[in-house]
């Protein structure tokens, strides 16, 4: 179907323009000299300097990164276990409930998840702060990790694991030496997904954080409610930059891994 009609060309051009122009404007105007965000007054990096001098933003950024690293790591461990149980667990009591609990948070409105977790934390009397945000983020992002990892596990050739067991590996060794390296790309993309979900989250963090912990999205949201500001433009540009570099390098890495895997498979086929 390689026939791009004029209609296809126009819709692709307009579509990608629609997706990218808002972000391009944001980036361009973050280098605007003027305090009036919508009036161009010459190139300047002063808002970046101002941002670096803003302790409130810096400490919020630090809290956000801490929460994201911790919650995505926990979520990856729990989510991989969850995926393993879903795909390999066989039958056990309450299996339907378990898979329901894995899939439900994916479609749950954030306001409900946030509200319910807050009520839980108050009910059992935990003081709200970094730890409660980590618990909340781990819970919803482990489900995303489970979905990503289980889609890899489904296509996984089980005979490789069985061969390792036959050759004298313990189940733990077979997992570490055979299964894990094969599902590693899915586990890594699960971690990355959990990490960005946590960096991004405003609603659940607002419900589950206390006065002692403010994350960057909470800070941005309260600043943005008052209107557009050049400092937020600068901050957004930095965040867009980090994500772009991350996504592009992740896709390059996975491309390389694919090439290497293909080469290995060909070598194995030749050896036979």
């Amino acid at each position: 179907m390689n026939r791009l009609s004029w209609f296809n060309t126009v819709s692709l051009t307009l579509g990608f323009a629609f997706l990218y122009i808002p972000m391009v404007i944001l980036i361009v105007y973050s280098f605007n000299e003027s305090k009036l965000v919508t009036v161009w007054a010459g190139f300047s990096t002063k808002w970046y300097g101002e941002l670096l001098g803003n302790d409130a933003f810096l400490s919020a950024a630090w809290v956000t990164v801490k929460v994201a690293v911790l919650s995505s790591t926990f979520a990856t461990v729990l989510g991989t276990m969850g995926a393993y149980v879903l795909v390999r667990g066989g039958r056990f009591m309450g299996r339907t409930l378990f898979s329901g609990m894995i899939y439900a948070p994916l479609v749950m409105p954030e306001v409900i998840t946030g509200l319910s977790l807050l009520l839980l934390f108050i009910g059992i009397g935990i003081e709200r702060g970094v730890m409660t945000i980590v618990l909340a983020h781990t819970t919803f992002s482990m489900c995303y990790v489970s979905v990503v990892v289980s889609s890899r596990l489904v296509t996984f050739d089980r005979s490789l694991e069985e061969a390792a067991l036959d050759l004298g590996c313990s189940p733990a060794e077979a997992f570490r030496l055979v299964t894990l390296p094969i599902i590693a790309p899915a586990v890594i993309s699960g971690w990355l997904l959990a990490f960005t979900l946590s960096l991004d989250d405003l609603v659940i963090a607002s419900f589950t954080s206390g006065p002692s912990a403010t994350t960057l999205p909470i800070k941005i949201f309260s600043a943005v409610r008052l209107g557009v500001s050049p400092e937020i433009n600068a901050l957004s540009t930095i965040m867009i930059g980090i994500v772009t570099v991350g996504v592009i390098s992740a896709s390059l890495i996975s491309k390389q891994a694919l090439v290497r895997q293909k080469r290995d498979e060909q070598a194995a086929a030749r050896a036979q």
Binding site: Y20, M23, Y29, V37, D200, I220, S236, M239
Partner: peptide, 19 residues
């Protein structure tokens, strides 16, 4: 190019339209 915006902060993408 379609996936990239999905990874960028939701809040920032909404904020971009305010300006």
């Amino acid at each position: 190019l379609v996936i990239l915006p999905f990874w960028t902060s939701f809040l920032i993408r909404v904020y971009a339209w305010m300006g």
